[in-house]
Structures are given as C-alpha cells and as structure tokens.
Design a binder for these strands. Structure first.
Length: 297
DNA sequence: CTCCAGGTTCCGG
DNA sequence: CCGGAACATGGA
C-alpha cells in the first residue's frame, strides 16, 4: 500500500546539475505533492511522478519529453551562473540554490495561479490552487493517487465569482474570473504572446485584470522562459533595498526596476529567483531558532 | 489580538 | 512618477 502512486517502472532522464526538490519548493509552481521518495503533480493534463536519486532523474514512462521541457533541463546552469554579477549577496544565494531551474509552466495555469498570489503567503497560494483544481479541474489517476488538472480558461469563465470565492480567493476571485473571460473570448491570446518580444508580451499580459507588473513578470519568467524577466515582490524589494541600495534611503519602484534590469544581466530572472529563495530560507531558519528559544521553558 | 503575506488599482500630489 | 488606501484571508 505504501508509495503505490509510484509506477512499477520509471524512465530516467539526463539531468545534470538539477535539484528536483529545490526546484519544486522554490515558489514557482504550487501544486506538487510529496509522494514516497518523489513528487506527484500534473504537467498540462498529464499526471506525472518524478523522483531524483542522486544524479538520476526518474519520471513516469512516456512523460520524458514533457518533463524535460517543464523542468527546463535544456537550460545551461554553467552559462547562467557565469552571467551573474559577482557580489557577496549573489554568491551566497548561489550556494543555496545550486540545481534550481526556472520551470517552463503552461502559461494559463501559471498566470491564473499568480493572479491569486497577491498579498498571500506561499502556503495560501497552494491551498487556493488545489481548491480550484479540485472544484473545477479534471480528476486524473496516478496509481492510487488522485490528482486534478488546472481548469481551462473556458471552464473558469463560466464559473461564478461566488464559486471562486468558495476557493478562498477573496477579492482575487473577480480578477481571475475577468481574466478567464478575456482569454476564453480570445481578447487576449496566450499563444500569440509567445511570438511577441519582451516589452510587448509584458504589456499584453498587463491588459488582464489582476495582472500588474509583478504578476506579468512571473508569467514571463515561469511560463514563457523570458529569463531576463525580474519580478519585484516584497521579498526582492527588501533584498534590493538592503543589499544594493544600502546607502540610498527610500529607493523608488522605478529605481529598483531600472537597477534590476541593468545589473543582473541576461539571466536576471534566475538571479531574482535565487535571491528570492535564499531570502525566504534565511528568514525561515531565523524563525526556527526563535521558536526553539521561546519554546524552551 | 496584531502583523503581514511572491499586488493591483485608483486617486490626489 | 510617487505615496496612500482599499481589497479578503489565514498563518505566525
């Protein structure tokens, strides 16, 4: 009965310099679950089991090319690391994030998920994402594990705001619904965005309700593989101010944006994700120490 | 109970 | 372009 979501046979994929767990826990995608020694989740509408044993990366047979694309195993970590600026904060983040890949997620579910992310902790984003899948998605089976696909724009477009609020979206329900309708009606075409250059793609995404610069950049980076995209959230904002604007008090949003686009280079999105993950882990470790102190006695 | 979370939008300087 | 305020919900 244990680990029966693990297929009897697994297919191995060439995946040098790749860390599956680190990648799935870095706040890019929110629906993967631990199962046995690996993780289960969906890629597009296909259920996938993925597991890493040392340097060997294993997935459900038949999903090799899907997984290769999704986990961006074609990216070159060596070239990416070599492109980063050489400063203490960046070098520390690199040590924390070796093997992390920027995923190539399906645009719609990435977009929809990040619309729900505003003013929410990662754990909440995960809860909302799973609730939406369970309520509106299709059930797919993987061994005895039960997974749900992310519902299409057309499916969510015919949901009511009330139904979406039942997934704990709060004020985000109206934005997700509005965006689903614009895409279902082909007012905005997510496939066409693939053919646009970065500024045009960003502007197109920002036409959607609930999509501002930060969410648009997340989609650019985590779905469209625009590796220069540099989403600036509260965490990265703090890092930029405390590390790179130490002397200049009160850096404006425009200053942060201009700096991030020039300083971090052609793989700025990777740099951003490394700095983001390191900042979160550091905070979590500090909280853990505090916990032990206050709990003792 | 208070604080804050991978923001966006609208509004007055 | 900038700072403020409103907007829901639930962990810490």
């Amino acid at each position: 009965m244990s680990n029966s979501s693990v297929p009897a046979r697994l297919a191995s994929i060439e995946a040098p310099e790749f860390d599956l767990e680190l990648t799935l826990r870095s706040g890019q995608a929110f629906h993967w679950s631990k199962s046995g020694e690996g993780y289960v989740g969906t890629i597009e509408n296909t259920p996938v089991y993925a597991e890493q044993r040392e340097a060997v990366f294993l997935v459900t047979p038949g999903t090799e090319s899907l997984a290769h694309h999704y986990f961006a195993l074609d990216h070159s970590p060596a070239a990416i690391l070599a492109s980063f600026p050489n400063d203490p904060a960046m070098n520390t983040a690199i040590e924390y994030c070796r093997g992390m890949r920027i995923l190539r997620q399906p645009p719609w579910e990435c977009l929809a998920t990040f619309i729900t992310s505003s003013m929410k902790q990662v754990a909440h984003i995960r809860q909302m994402s799973l609730a939406i899948r369970k309520k509106f998605g299709q059930r797919v089976q993987l061994g005895d594990a039960e997974l749900f696909t992310y519902p299409s724009p057309a499916r969510l477009a015919k949901a009511t705001e009330e139904e979406l609020r039942e997934c704990k979206l709060g004020y985000r329900a109206k934005n997700l619904l509005g965006t689903a309708r614009l895409i279902a009606d082909n007012v905005v075409n997510l496939d066409r965005i693939k053919t646009m250059d970065d500024p045009a793609a960003l502007a197109e995404l920002c036409k959607l309700p609930g999509v501002g610069e930060k969410v648009a950049n997340c989609v650019m980076l985590f779905a469209y593989g625009r590796l220069r995209a540099f989403p600036i959230d509260v965490w990265i904002g703090r890092v930029l101010r405390e590390i790179y604007f130490k002397r200049k008090r009160n850096a404006t949003p425009k200053q942060l944006r201009d700096f991030s686009q020039t300083y971090f280079g052609n793989y700025g999105g990777y740099a951003q994700q490394y700095l983001f993950h390191h900042a979160r882990m550091k905070k979590r470790n500090e909280a853990g120490k505090q916990e032990k102190h206050t709990r003792r006695k």
